[in-house]
Amino acid sequence: MRGVNAALGVFVAVLFVVSIAVGPTGFAPLGALSDMLSGRDAPMALILVELRLPRALLGVIIGAALGLAGAAMQGLLRNPLAEPGVTGVSATAALGAVLTFYGGYAGATPLALPLAGVVGAASGAILLLAIAGRDATVATLILIGAALNALAGAATALVLGLSPNPYAFYEIGTWLMGSIADRGLDHVALALPCVALGCLPLLLARRGLDALALGEETARGLGVDPRRMTLLVIAGAALAVGGAVAVSGVVGFVGLMAPHAIRPLVRYRPGASLVPSALAGAALVLLADIALRLLPTGRELPLGVMTALLGAPVLWQLAWRARRSGQTPWL
């Protein structure tokens, strides 16, 4: 357990450094460092601090938020497919952010954009739970997720189309497929508070999520209130996902893949999978973001394209297992 976290921590740290090292103008850490220490606005120092660093930081923040929220949602709903992207919670978060940003309200207060993302994510999560309940089957959850995704995606396109800004309509890809390219430290400042705040309730839920592994009746017998757990997870996931998506757009499948990879390593304990899933999510997003910068595509692909390429097969595998066993897939 501690070993898993330590190994993942080292992996994330290595990817963080690689992410900072990768870019169109190469890597000159020593020159940049000496520039930074002397306080000069030299090009390399500027690039490292204002472009590479925020991008790597956002990779960690957004990946951790999605991984943690995914693991917590799966623990609450006892369903390995309950993930911000698949369930449509990310899409409603993006819709909230899009409404605020293109409406011109993002400048009103610094936190208007992430808060709009949080409100969007919370609405999505509440809608999901209202329709699905806490013990929906895999198929039900997927259906509701598909409906929420379609609705939020269409509404996002509508909002972008209605914007008088000629570029707005073409930014649908960024919102529905996600990107952390060309973000700055100001974006880090937008995402970080919400994500950090969201982690608290999610981590508070860890013991309750363990108890829920044996069903709600057992959990209640163990002194765990499933309604309180629901509240903690909705609040935490909405804050974390809303804050992340408001800056990056929908980056799908991270919350599916990270806990999926982690569970066997922590003996399938939902509570124990939270922190490693956050680390694995960070590693995944960093990895995907590095890969898309190294791919010889003319223009950089959206981040969500990379994570979908990796994540869709996982979804397939889960569906295949569910079909064969006729029950909830675990792995």
Partner: peptide
């Protein structure tokens, strides 16, 4: 309870350890 739901494939010891949750025990 009469029916024991097992939503995740915990191992035997971890399942029993859940009984210590009210005492503030941590599974790990």
């Amino acid at each position: 309870p009469q029916t024991i739901a097992a939503h995740w494939p915990l191992n035997g010891r971890d399942m029993v350890a859940l009984g210590r949750l009210p005492h503030g025990a941590r599974l790990e």
